[in-house]
């Protein structure tokens, strides 16, 4: 909990300092060299850039608590509102992709662990590990482009871009999930292999429980505990990964916003987006810690 607060504070401060650290005048940079000097001065005043650094910081933090993230330099729309709309579109990609990742990785990883245990079926093991390494080596945006080329351009099954019906979600969600699912399935398998050799699994076998119960009730929770820590990082990465995926699919999400606002130097918008992305990553990590505590009774009292 303390770490979350410290991290949040650092995030807030860093996002505040971002504008200060931009070399030169951020407003001038955003509006271009041809903008009249009065307009720049007015906008500077609106953004409070002429106040002392401490005043600006305090105002920034105070506004954060009221949900006020300032205004876009270019469009003068409320940053909080823009981000709110875009974030929804982003989460509608990231969350299904996260669920899909688990839905693929856990059964595949468990099945491969059971099948290839103790050096059995070497060929299946090599195929699995090889495939997952190849899949994990392919970056999201390459997956995106390949998926678009095959399913949208060649076969015309689904739209190539944009957010419309349910079929427009298929490619971006797949593109987000494939790589992480490959990595996670490998980790689940390795964890599961370790767990299957544990003494308590031998105990369960000695009690002649059914194979299904041994694998799912006795082994899986132990394997998942170790996997969860990593999947937390994975979800955070996935939220960030939407930046690339949204770019390919022209998805009206936060990722597209952050990129276009970096290019147009719309700093308040970038600031807000960085803040929200960072906060999501931190929250996810904390939630994972809580989730682990719920599954593994030992971690609650710090006994390992």
């Amino acid at each position: 909990m303390r770490r979350l607060l410290v991290s949040l504070w650092i995030l807030v401060t860093a996002s505040f300092l971002m504008i200060q650290l931009v070399p030169g005048d951020p407003v001038r940079a955003a509006l271009g060299t041809s903008a009249p000097a009065e307009l720049v001065a007015t906008r500077r005043a609106q953004l409070g850039l002429d106040d002392s650094l401490l005043d600006q910081y305090l105002t920034y933090v105070r506004n954060l608590f009221t949900g006020d993230l300032g205004e876009s330099i270019l469009t003068q729309l409320s940053v909080a509102e823009t981000i709110g709309q875009r974030l929804l579109a982003t989460l509608s990609l990231a969350l299904p992709a996260f669920v899909l990742t688990f839905a693929i990785a856990v059964p595949v990883g468990v099945a491969m662990a059971v099948v290839t245990r103790r050096g059995r079926r070497r060929r299946a093991e090599l195929t699995f590990v090889g495939t997952s390494i190849v899949l994990a080596s392919i970056p999201e945006f390459v997956v995106c482009v390949a998926l678009v080329a095959v399913f949208a351009v060649n076969l015309g099954l689904v739209p190539a871009a944009g957010r419309s019906g349910i079929d427009s979600y298929v490619l971006p969600v797949l593109a987000l999930a494939i790589g992480p699912a490959a990595v996670l399935a490998r980790i689940v398998r390795v964890e599961m292999l370790a767990v299957l050799d544990a003494d308590y699994i031998r105990t369960a076998r000695a009690q002649r429980l059914s194979a299904l119960r041994i694998h799912l009730r006795h082994a899986l929770p132990n394997a998942v505990t170790a996997t969860l820590t990593l999947s937390g990082l994975m979800l955070a990465t996935m939220v960030a990964g939407t930046v690339l995926v949204e770019n390919v699919f022209a998805w009206p999400g936060l990722g597209g916003t952050i990129v276009s606002s970096i290019q147009s130097r719309d700093y308040p918008l970038v600031q807000g987006a960085v803040l929200v992305y960072g906060a999501i990553a931190l929250t996810v990590n904390t939630l994972v810690d809580v989730g682990i505590a719920a599954i593994d009774p030992r971690s609650m009292i710090g006994d390992s």
């Binding site: 960030a240 970038v270 960072g278």
Partner: peptide, 18 residues
């Protein structure tokens, strides 16, 4: 440890802005 909490793409974007 705090830095590790943030996805690296986010850090890259942040630094790219500055």
């Amino acid at each position: 440890n705090v830095l590790l909490g943030f996805p690296s793409l986010l850090m890259v974007l942040f630094l790219a802005v500055i």
